[in-house]
Design a protein around this nucleic acid. Structure first.
Lengths: 345, 345
DNA sequence: GTGAAAGCGCTAACAT
DNA sequence: ATGTTAGCGCTTTCAC
């Protein structure tokens, strides 16, 4: 590949002048600038980012650590981050931690030596990662935690209104007469899951509805887990009339469990999810869900980094993005007590 | 961050020795090796990948260009590639082209200056990208095209058995008595779409079934497009009794259209998709679909690159991964002519 | 306004 | 077996 030396030779100027032209310094005279640009064009020259980064002590990379690309909520976050980063001249280096903190740590350590301008991190460990994140900061990289937050982090964050969204969903169920509400939560260590549980509890407390301990089952944010926890809930006596699932995957699993046990959604059991995945409207019945914008989660995080790089030195930002309850057919009024179906399998 | 010079000072050896220790050269004496390792440990030293890459003229980056992260089929491909790359010591630099060739080109040009060891590319332009890919090769990077192939590419590739899978799906519909089979294809420029159409045609020709030109509608691999094309097909006279969609998103859209027009799937119309997304079994009715492994697509591509880097100089490889028809409830026997429902809306 | 030269952190060739 | 040194491609002083 052509390098700067060749451009310099071809346009009969010094190395420094080529650099100045490429950096857009206004001190270069027009004739020289044109000669350099012509050479750049003719050779299709692209500056070597490795050398530039090494010299500048900073690259145009924004690292992004996510816990699992294959969870259908995350691609939207990645896309939002990638779009925004690209439009600001940054490139996304994607690292998939597989919810494995050791892998996350390996990535964090090595990624840092690529001297990224920023880091967007969806941590898989609420406790451990801030020390490494501090190292990024110390090296002049801007760090934003997204979706789930570590304790002990005093920097920028972007999350959704998990508690409010869950509160709204629960109030909605209550408004339809439901009194036996159960929840399938995510891993209790994750702050987003904790907030969703808090919103659920909050609404129930306000309505003075008592919540049997077993009515909250801790799942794992995937369909399989939703299926299993729903099976447990559906066999309880009394059986809940509504299930609030902490994400749509859990809700899909719950809907499958309801069907497999010979019950009907929403006639026997109402279900609400969280995320409002594209496919919430494809399942039958279409799933009522708390919408959060994964795209914006990523986009706001990337924009925050771009702003910080441009010198925005304002105090810590904690963006909390709105949620909206999307009403669909998976929720109905509470069934009359007599009408309650027996499980048929 | 600590650098090699500090390690050298701390362990009282020369820079070169530190380098030799870190590169695992056996020529270093044990005492010195231990001293160096101790210093590395105590400072948590990580080699600067920018400097190393600049010097070695190659980094441990594998670039990956995909057309759209938010298409639910692709995250599995990314995950397969990332897993395999990571396990071989490589890191994935993810670029999202948004099906925009200009963006793809920008990424390709810039990414190359990061001196990646390899490139996995799902091109958005069947014609144009090979020139740039050749430049990667010339620079010693290994390139694998995945999922859809450019014409004019004589290097390594990984794809699924698109034609065979589609042939199987079509044969299955024929075996159930369907005679009026329609297809919603993907963009005709993409080779994967073309192969799926070919498999469909092939099976029909074998069965001597004539295919009205309008029975193949070209869609765009998304749900919206599936909905629109299905609406068109459903209003044709005679109406097809089965629709083969070139991917599951198109199939989901088609199923929505069928429902919205007051028809029933599978009683009035059978539907088969391609990809077998997780959600194929969640929709109602569960979708019959040609399964392909996105994970393996990515994993095989990454492994191919890792092998090439290790010196595998064998001739061009064209991996073609198997597909499997997953039978579910979205397909039924052809309805009796009399039973054919009128469109109710 | 332009050019010369130092140096970012590392590797590899060479000298000892 | 270990140390010394040139140089990867670039940016950024500093002379002129």
């Amino acid at each position: 590949m052509a390098n700067m030396k060749e451009i310099a030779r071809l346009s009969r100027v010094s190395l420094g002048t080529v650099s100045n032209v490429l950096s857009g310094l206004p001190t270069v005279s027009e004739p020289l600038r044109l000669r350099v640009m012509a050479a750049v064009e003719s050779l299709g020259y692209q500056p070597n980012q490795l050398a530039r980064g090494l010299r500048r002590d900073k690259t145009n990379i924004i690292g992004m650590i996510i816990s699992d690309v294959s969870n259908p909520f995350f691609p939207a976050v990645v896309k939002g981050a990638e779009d925004t980063a690209f439009n600001n001249g940054y490139r996304l280096f994607l690292c998939n931690s597989d919810n494995n903190f050791a892998k996350e740590e390996t990535y964090l350590r090595e990624l840092q030596t690529y001297l990224p301008s920023g880091l967007i991190i969806m941590t898989s460990d609420i406790k451990g990662s801030t020390k490494l994140a501090e190292a990024y900061r110390a090296a002049g990289s801007h760090v934003v935690y997204v979706d789930r937050l570590p304790h002990q982090w005093d920097g920028d964050t972007v999350t959704s209104m998990n508690e409010q969204g869950s509160y709204d969903a629960t109030k909605y169920l209550l408004s339809l007469g439901h009194k036996r509400l159960a929840m399938i939560s995510g891993p209790s260590l994750l702050t987003n899951s904790g907030e969703r549980v808090a919103g659920f509890r909050h609404a129930l407390e306000e309505a003075k509805i008592k919540l049997p301990a077993k009515y909250i089952q801790e799942g794992d944010f995937n369909k399989q887990s939703g299926y299993e926890k729903a099976c447990f809930l559906l066999q309880m006596d009394p059986r809940p009339t509504a299930i609030f699932a902490a994400n749509d995957l859990l809700a899909f699993g719950a809907m499958n469990a309801i069907r497999d046990m010979g019950l009907r959604c929403p006639e026997d059991i109402s279900v609400i999810g969280f995320d409002n995945l594209d496919l919430a409207e494809v399942v039958t019945p279409p799933l009522t869900s708390v919408e959060q914008s994964g795209y914006n989660l990523g986009a706001v995080a990337a924009q925050l980094i771009a702003d910080r790089i441009r010198g925005d030195g304002s105090p810590r930002r904690a963006h909390v993005l709105p949620t909206t309850l999307k009403l669909r057919a998976s929720v109905a009024k509470v069934p009359k007590e007599k009408a309650t179906r027996k499980i048929t399998k």
